[in-house]
Design a protein around this nucleic acid. Structure first.
Lengths: 169, 169
DNA sequence: TAGTCATTTCATTTTTTATTGAAGAGCTTG
DNA sequence: CAAGCTCTTCAATAAAAAATGAAATGACTA
């Protein structure tokens, strides 16, 4: 008994092998930096498209909902990964992939990594005062470890500008 | 009408303010590299503990289940973030935090980032052959973009050894 | 300005991921 | 070698995250 083709497969038939590879590649990368599947799908599709696509093209080709397409494009616009281009005689927005790939890494570093390092360093300040009220054995342990953690975080933080420069160049 | 204290709060009372800060700090970092909350909790607790803790200490203090504690410790052992120490007269394993913080970053780079870059570069090979069978307009677009992506990924890959050295030193 | 079309928003549903705890395997000890 | 601990595993459950689509919004046009 052969199962009827799943919806997913039907949809996928309208995608070329190249598009499927591209979509899978970007889903993987985007997940890594904390972005969801549908965002990766959209970018993957646009990346190998030589034409600008409207939102309903994207919905149809990928088989995703209106809401997912709208929100995915919102995220991609917000990190500068897509831009909309004007198409004469068509009311709809049309999107193309921005090929400046370093933008993703940059956005991740500045919006995820940097704030988290800053927050952690703040927290260490708090922890240092908490530790100073403990009795000597525990205090010594805590202070030594906090010092170590702080040192390591500062080192990480100091690397970020270099990393950004390397990626953008 | 005052609500009765939630279980979480009861548990949390057995944690010092320092422990809470440490736990929150590490939950945040571990999430960033794709590890789950309970893993961060356990490491955070051990990080500020001057004594080695047994698994049931960990369960009790954090208010997590047997399974979560066992699995969390398994992950932490696998990345070398904790080690067990021998406690005379006690059958149970006792754990201490490994303070070599660079291990986390190293594990992330080698187990998440590097394989994903390798996989992506492989995929680009596939995509290049797929593109070569297209007609000229689309082919030119695809080839140019693939070249660009490849270049960027190779650049990223070339940075990893340097990054590792910087973090470990 | 009424009607149509494109897009956004968000309450609901679905899917995915993490947690729980009972069952059981492996040690240790009396 | 039986009874008791400690720890692991995994099927079931709970929690979190993402996707859906109907309704609201805004924008153009006839």
């Amino acid at each position: 008994m052969q199962a009827a083709p799943a919806t997913l497969e039907i949809e996928a038939e309208s995608l070329s092998a190249l598009e499927v590879e591209s979509i899978e590649l970007f889903i993987g990368f985007f997940k890594l930096i904390g972005l969801q599947k549908s965002v990766g799908e959209i970018y993957g599709l646009l990346f190998v498209s030589s034409r600008a696509l409207a939102m309903d093209d994207i919905m149809t080709r990928l088989g995703i909902s209106l809401g997912a397409a709208s929100q995915g494009l919102k995220v991609l616009r917000s990190v500068g990964a897509v831009k909309s281009v004007y198409m004469p005689g068509d009311r709809r927005d049309h999107y193309v992939a921005d090929l400046e790939l370093s933008k993703f890494a940059t956005a991740f570093i500045q919006e995820e990594l940097k704030p988290r390092l800053d927050r952690a360093l703040e927290r260490i300040g708090t922890m240092e005062s908490l530790a100073s009220g403990m009795d000597s054995g525990d205090r010594a342990t805590a202070e030594e470890r906090l010092e170590r953690l702080k040192h390591w975080l500062e080192r990480g933080e100091s690397m970020l500008p270099w990393l950004l420069k390397f990626l953008v160049k």
